[in-house]
Amino acid sequence: MRSGRFWAWAAFIVGAAYFFIPLIATLEFSLRMRRGTYSFDAYQVVLGDPRFQATFGYSVVVAVFTIILGVLVVVPTAYWIRLRMPYLRPLVEFITLLPLVIPAIVIVFGYIRMYGSNSPLPFLASARGTDILLIIGYATLALPYMYRAVDTGLRTIDVRTLTEAAQILGAGWTTIIARVILPNVLIAVLSGAFLTFAIVIGEFTMASLLNRPAFGPYLQNIGANRAYEPAALAIIAFAITWGCMSVIQFLARYAPKSANRPN
């Protein structure tokens, strides 16, 4: 027993070291911009750079629209599959997994060929159109996470009975989704939303190939040309991602307690 515990701790320490040492090294390096002493100079430079603010602001806006699109597509789909077409679930799960196996570069080249300025749907003919295409692309990339989060949320409530209870009380589909289903899976939707946010903030391939001023290409550009700032940016990006995860954990405490299932 004692030897088992030793190896468990050893495995934990090796795993933690593998994760934390590069992070600590990056943090330490990001603080060494001023010669001979630790300082936040690299962070000041990064945060004071107008391109950082512009690209980060752009990516935040794109992320917000991506989340809205994702929620509008995924919540009704997952709800309908669970309620009326459970036999389609394996197919839908397979489709939502595709963005994990098809590289973003393949998807974006497909977009460029399909939606060029000479196509019937010329998204790429204008900057606004390209932004819309980027949002659609990001919603696709975030689909595996969003769908699973929402589907898991729906699993915790008795979707069918709640729907029927609302229907018999006179509610239509919009009321049912907005006032019964969505509030009860809100935490799951928010989990999906923050995962989507984290993906969009750091995404490089699509934004770069569609030539949009997003945060991902900016990160890459700084990384290729500067020494300390990329390390500071990596730590900032990491803090944002962890911030999102903490918000999910925090919000989960406020999930409605399910009382649908008889004891």
Binding site: I157, D158, A165, G170, N260
Partner: peptide
Amino acid sequence: LKPNQRNIGMVFQAYALFPN
């Protein structure tokens, strides 16, 4: 007619109260 057009009340085995 759809259920929401019938003006019927119903009580379910599983209570079906809205948890939120």
